[in-house]
Computed example of a mutant assay.
Amino acid sequence: MPAIIPLPAPDPDPEDVARGLADLERHLAAQTPTAPPPATTHNTAPAGLPVRAESKRVRRLRAEVAEAHEVADLQEDETPLLVDSPKVRKRRKAAHQAARLHELAKNPQMRAWQAARMRRTLLTALMVALTLALAWSTAGVQHFAAENAPAWSPSWVFAWLVEPFMSIALLGIVGARAYLGTRGQPLNDPKLVKIEWLFLGLTLGMNAWPYLPWVAESFSLSRLVLHILGPVVAVAIVTALPIILAAFARLDHDRVGDRAGEGLTGLTYSGNGHDRVRRTAADVAPLIERTQKLIAAGTLPAAPSAYRIQRALRCAMDDARVVRDALKEVA
């Protein structure tokens, strides 16, 4: 069999080669998996350079810069400075309350209430002190009245009753004068004053007698002072109480006005006494009426002097002069 001689292959066409390469590339692209897109970043890189992902430090610094820009913009707004702080608010509230209290203190009704409260407090304190002073002297009076009687004997027991019944009578008189004094009608009848001094004198004498130098076996000044302390305090309270109550009764609560900027009313003077009586007679009308009652009762003469009127009514001397002049006008 004859041998087969292979023929040489023809040269490939360039278009066929290009077509084959394109088919090969499409086949490889279909077989290769798609890569994920790169992470988006906020950094910008110059053209031609690759973009890198931001680090944690860069992101933190970028957030701080953004926050600083926002704070700077807010700091330019002065509205928070117009809002009062708690401390300023508290101080303004205290100042407002102080101004209201100051304005209220000038109100005549408020001044009358304050005077009534103070008068009640003083009267209570003085009456309690008077009661304690009379109770203090009870032991001294009992020692005087018992005259060394045996303990729990009838004389010794009844001696304890001497000071209480005198004290109760004295407190009754003082209480009546105090009550009338708070109502602007001081009770200054000479008979009542003499009765008060009689009770106080008896209490003082009975407390001091056993400890006087010519009576006591051994004189002691400290014991004498200790035993007369109660009666002395009682005498002082009984003397001072009518004066204090009369002063409260003469208070003029309208003297400080309630208009802004008005202070104490100053003293006024007039060259004509008759004009002054016409101007102030209405203000002292209650004093004139009381003076007329005292004249009718015989306590004051028909034409009393200003001094006598002042002593009888326990009023100011200026008011007493006005009352005197008014009575002369009426006569």
Score class of each variant (00 low, 15 high):
residue 3 A to L: 07
residue 6 P to L: 14
residue 7 L to H: 06
residue 10 P to G: 08
residue 10 P to H: 04
residue 11 D to G: 01
residue 11 D to C: 03
residue 11 D to N: 05
residue 11 D to F: 01
residue 13 D to M: 03
residue 22 A to C: 01
residue 24 L to H: 11
residue 28 L to G: 04
residue 28 L to Y: 12
residue 31 Q to R: 12
residue 39 A to P: 15
residue 45 A to C: 10
residue 45 A to T: 14
residue 46 P to L: 10
residue 46 P to T: 00
residue 50 P to W: 03
residue 52 R to S: 13
residue 54 E to S: 14
residue 54 E to L: 12
residue 58 V to M: 14
residue 59 R to V: 08
residue 59 R to I: 09
residue 60 R to C: 07
residue 61 L to V: 10
residue 64 E to Y: 12
residue 67 E to V: 11
residue 68 A to Y: 11
residue 82 L to Q: 13
residue 83 V to G: 07
residue 83 V to N: 09
residue 84 D to V: 03
residue 84 D to I: 03
residue 85 S to T: 15
residue 86 P to I: 01
residue 87 K to V: 07
residue 87 K to D: 11
residue 92 R to Q: 07
residue 95 A to P: 00
residue 97 Q to Y: 05
residue 98 A to H: 04
residue 105 A to V: 01
residue 109 Q to C: 08
residue 115 A to R: 12
residue 116 A to I: 05
residue 120 R to F: 11
residue 129 A to V: 01
residue 132 L to Y: 11
residue 134 L to R: 00
residue 135 A to C: 10
residue 136 W to L: 09
residue 139 A to K: 03
residue 142 Q to T: 04
residue 147 E to R: 14
residue 149 A to G: 04
residue 149 A to R: 00
residue 149 A to P: 03
residue 159 A to K: 07
residue 159 A to P: 03
residue 161 L to F: 15
residue 165 F to E: 07
residue 167 S to Y: 05
residue 169 A to Y: 14
residue 169 A to D: 10
residue 171 L to D: 05
residue 176 A to D: 13
residue 177 R to H: 11
residue 177 R to C: 13
residue 178 A to P: 04
residue 178 A to V: 12
residue 179 Y to P: 00
residue 180 L to G: 11
residue 184 G to H: 08
residue 188 N to V: 07
residue 191 K to Y: 13
residue 192 L to G: 15
residue 194 K to M: 10
residue 196 E to M: 13
residue 196 E to I: 15
residue 197 W to P: 03
residue 199 F to C: 09
residue 199 F to L: 14
residue 201 G to T: 06
residue 204 L to S: 02
residue 207 N to F: 00
residue 215 V to E: 15
residue 216 A to V: 06
residue 216 A to Y: 06
residue 218 S to D: 14
residue 222 S to L: 15
residue 223 R to P: 02
residue 224 L to F: 13
residue 224 L to K: 08
residue 227 H to I: 08
residue 227 H to G: 04
residue 228 I to Q: 06
residue 229 L to G: 12
residue 229 L to P: 02
residue 230 G to C: 10
residue 232 V to R: 04
residue 239 T to Y: 15
residue 241 L to M: 11
residue 248 F to R: 10
residue 248 F to S: 11
residue 248 F to W: 08
residue 250 R to C: 10
residue 252 D to K: 06
residue 252 D to V: 04
residue 254 D to G: 10
residue 256 V to P: 03
residue 256 V to K: 08
residue 256 V to W: 15
residue 256 V to S: 08
residue 260 A to N: 11
residue 263 G to Y: 07
residue 265 T to E: 09
residue 267 L to V: 00
residue 267 L to H: 06
residue 270 S to E: 06
residue 272 N to M: 02
residue 274 H to Q: 07
residue 274 H to Y: 03
residue 276 R to C: 01
residue 277 V to C: 01
residue 278 R to Y: 00
residue 279 R to C: 00
residue 281 A to H: 06
residue 283 D to Y: 08
residue 285 A to Q: 13
residue 288 I to Q: 11
residue 292 Q to L: 09
residue 294 L to V: 00
residue 297 A to Y: 04
residue 299 T to M: 04
residue 302 A to E: 12
residue 304 P to R: 02
residue 307 Y to W: 05
residue 308 R to C: 05
residue 311 R to D: 07
residue 313 L to E: 15
residue 313 L to N: 12
residue 317 M to S: 02
residue 320 A to R: 04
residue 320 A to L: 02
residue 327 L to N: 05
residue 328 K to V: 09
residue 330 V to E: 14
